[in-house]
Design a protein around this nucleic acid. Sequence first.
DNA 1: GTGAAAGCGCTAACAT
DNA 2: ATGTTAGCGCTTTCAC
Lengths: 361, 361
Amino acid sequence: MKLSGVWYPLISDIGRLWVERTDRPIRVTSFDVAEKAGVNQSTVSRALNDDPAIKDSTKAKVRTAAEALGYYVDTRASALRRDRTGTLAIVVIGRPGTDAHAINPFHYSLLGSICAAAAGRGYQSLVSFQSEPTDFSDHFVRSRQADGLILIGTRNNDEAWEFHRGGANAGKVAIWGSTLDDPGSIASDNVTAGKLAAERLLAAGRKRLLFVGDIDDPQRQFRERYSGFCDYLRATGHTVTDPVFADGQTRFDQGRASVARLLASKCEFDALFCCCDSLALGVLDGLRSAKVRVPEDVSVIGFDGLESGLHCIPPLATIQPDFGAAGVMLVDAALGSIAPGEQQRVPVKLIERASAGPVAK
Amino acid sequence: MKLSGVWYPLISDIGRLWVERTDRPIRVTSFDVAEKAGVNQSTVSRALNDDPAIKDSTKAKVRTAAEALGYYVDTRASALRRDRTGTLAIVVIGRPGTDAHAINPFHYSLLGSICAAAAGRGYQSLVSFQSEPTDFSDHFVRSRQADGLILIGTRNNDEAWEFHRGGANAGKVAIWGSTLDDPGSIASDNVTAGKLAAERLLAAGRKRLLFVGDIDDPQRQFRERYSGFCDYLRATGHTVTDPVFADGQTRFDQGRASVARLLASKCEFDALFCCCDSLALGVLDGLRSAKVRVPEDVSVIGFDGLESGLHCIPPLATIQPDFGAAGVMLVDAALGSIAPGEQQRVPVKLIERASAGPVAK
DNA sequence: GTGAAAGCGCTAACAT
DNA sequence: ATGTTAGCGCTTTCAC
């Protein structure tokens, strides 16, 4: 029988070595299991991998021995030999200068869904948060730490996206969010989202519907939401107006500032579709400061499905992507099961809450 | 020179194989780098690991060759040989029956901080979300996928905690949250948190301070917060009362129900310290429904530092643990740098927001 | 249906 | 200061 090596003792030697006070951890290898089960080491491997060539009785013998010894297959050795890792790398891009715990909750939800989808496909998830250039790293696939890479997070970190563009993982990357130049990206069905928002606001009996948000944001999804919103208004014979937007430090600030500008402009409106929930929360705050009542005077709908929208006043109606579907699509794309170049769209649904106002009879 | 194997061609053979239309991925190994740099393979390994025995000029030569070939050390082979993984496993326990994206935001923040701390120590983070028994898995260390394990998430999943208690990672586990029987756990300095809350509410000129929350919750930290709260009240000669609590499906529901019970009891009060922010949000909602004004009639302080607390009305004053410190402590504990048995405490600080009411002159 | 043996790509002990 | 060599623990081809 081949020995399992010189560094670590066979299980059968533990007693002796314990007495010799070795401080090396005791390791159980497939050779130990083989010895205990009275079979060859290769049979252990085959049995544990459920090879149909192995007799059931042998499998049972091996499994019993493995369990008795507390044996687990060494993932590193297995991965090295099989030439796969069984792992997906997930990179979450954050705003420069902010802590990892200040990540947009939307991306945390997405992260959770991705990990769940990866687990469903039998993959582990190697997660890293990258905000500063010193954090940047993309060699997961090249260094055989992962079989594919998923990129999510804020688009407001040019350095990070620049770094990851055509990085060391070429061909095995899935990206969340739509841009013109990322061919394999996955995003919400933003056009439908815009349509759903317009439809619902019209159903509330609203006449002057506006879009709030920056359609020139690097986050191109905002533009798509605006476009779907306008398309539906046009198709139903309504007036289409330019988006309302004033800049600010955070999305919340942008929402407040946009409302301020809008009210100052004396432009008439009775419904707002906001590009995202965090901006919508700022919009609600701005409207409240100005004593504009929601939803009595103005209906508001956001996008994202953030938890914060549940506890604001009034609770924020919002359009939420199907996180489960998003996770699965991203994982499949990273594993190469989706033809590159295809832009996948994640279904969205309206979450009814008070801010949208009741549907008119 | 030893060949790098039969499965994959040396870089020098790429041209030929390309022509032969092999569909195997081309791999660059340290042998290819050695050939290109004109040194031995072991020299490549030493050079890239910055072995002081290697001449600077040789190191430069090797690094140039490696870069030219796009070579990265194969993590699996390196980890196998070195017998370490450079990875930490992080398990996030969720409530049974809920999706990964419905995880408590507090735990997402903690997760982010842990990954950041791990990266700071040179470790990768292997994340898994476990809610259902089918997700349960704890053999990360035994199967050599990770050098240690960090356990966070809800305490309201008995099956999960039962599973992880004394699992296959014995001795290399760090746990968030305090319990009597997890000796190596890390938790917030809850006693100080209770003191800070009491101190602040008294400073607002409040006289009848109550604690809201279930001190018998499996989340034992609630009891500690209550205890620190009471200690301070006692030490300053104030009356101490039993906690207020009524059960509910979610923490938010518990908050609403507790307020309802409290108001029905006709018990006098002008300040509430809530065991956690999500319950506090329910408390605010309950008070609003009952037309009790916050902070004019009642001051409210929560615990956690959730983002949702920023956007509720009024914004929720809260006590927040230092997430950065928490991440570092958990990582160090999982890596064994902290003596087992010690209970580590993460510093907390008060986040001033309107719900606490102004400090009385 | 199982055993024998090779070797994944790397690091480190042992040479020189 | 660098080359030679063994072998980490596993999977898989090749024998029988």
